[in-house]
Simulated scan of single mutants.
Amino acid sequence: MIRVLLADDEAMIRAGVRAILAADDGIEVVAEAADGRAAVELTRAHRPDVAVLDIRMPVLDGLAAAAEIRRLHPDTAVVMLTTFGEDDYIARALGDGAAGFLLKSGDPRELIAGVRAVAEGAAYLSPRVASRVIAQLPTARLDARATARERVDGLTAREREVLALVGEGLANAEIARRLHLVEGTVKAYVSAILNRLEVRNRVQAAIIAYESGLVGPA
């Protein structure tokens, strides 16, 4: 069972998201918050697998709450849910360690898919968000691409294999099956890769994999 914390300052939005998640028998909403500070406190109390956070909330906004949750409870994956699709929100959310970014105007099935993906250790961006991120990559500066290649060259051959599959969006269990490894070993590889690349989440690692030429665009 995937245990979820839901935070949004609008009660009707929380009710709608809760109803969507309830359609999946493998997901349970264990706590709800109306502001970012409460979301952090409830994460401490309930230790959910996934925290679904609205970006604009009182007391502490979703971006700040995401950073705090990731710092205090790294085992809780964060999904940002918002009506805003501006690039600065996307960049800040991913930079603060969010593993998923979904738009409230998206298909409800994306919400379930996103929660399941990040709970399994993968990253998930709604198609519209992903297209914006990928569209910016070909225009990246040549020096950024060179830096990405240098960072990837510092990995072992096996770590590069794992990074390539992370770049393809595979979860730990899928990578384990592909490479005939134990899932715990894959998790250790992913942690080592994030440390070596000095990135905070799988999305940032996937972007480096793309910039370095290790994988192509989806």
Rank of each mutant, 00 (worst) to 15 (best):
D75I: 04
L111Q: 02
F101M: 08
G62A: 12
L103S: 01
D87G: 04
S105E: 14
L81Q: 01
T76G: 01
A66R: 04
T82A: 05
P74A: 07
V79Q: 09
A65D: 10
M80E: 00
L102P: 02
Y89P: 09
P108F: 05
A93L: 04
L72E: 03
K104C: 00
R56Y: 06
L60R: 08
I90N: 05
P58S: 09
A99V: 01
L102G: 00
I55N: 10
A113R: 02
E86G: 09
E86Q: 15
I90Y: 11
A77T: 09
L94F: 01
L81A: 04
L81V: 05
R109F: 09
D88C: 10
L94Y: 00
L63M: 05
L111G: 08
D87N: 08
K104E: 05
E86H: 13
H73F: 14
L72M: 10
D87K: 00
L72P: 02
R109M: 08
G106D: 14
R70M: 11
K104A: 00
A113C: 03
D54C: 07
A113G: 06
Y89C: 12
A99P: 07
A65H: 01
L81H: 08
L111N: 08
L102Q: 00
A99R: 13
L103A: 01
V78W: 04
V59G: 15
D88N: 13
V79M: 12
F101K: 11
I69H: 08
H73E: 01
D88W: 13
A64H: 09
R71M: 02
A98W: 02
A93N: 03
L94W: 02
A99Q: 15
T83W: 01
A113D: 01
S105Q: 13
A98K: 09
A98F: 03
A65R: 00
G106A: 13
E110L: 02
R109Y: 04
I112T: 14
E68M: 08
F84N: 06
A99G: 13
L60I: 11
R56S: 12
L60G: 12
R70E: 04
R92F: 04
D88Q: 13
M57C: 06
A67T: 10
D96S: 13
A66N: 11
I90P: 06
I112F: 07
H73A: 12
L102N: 01
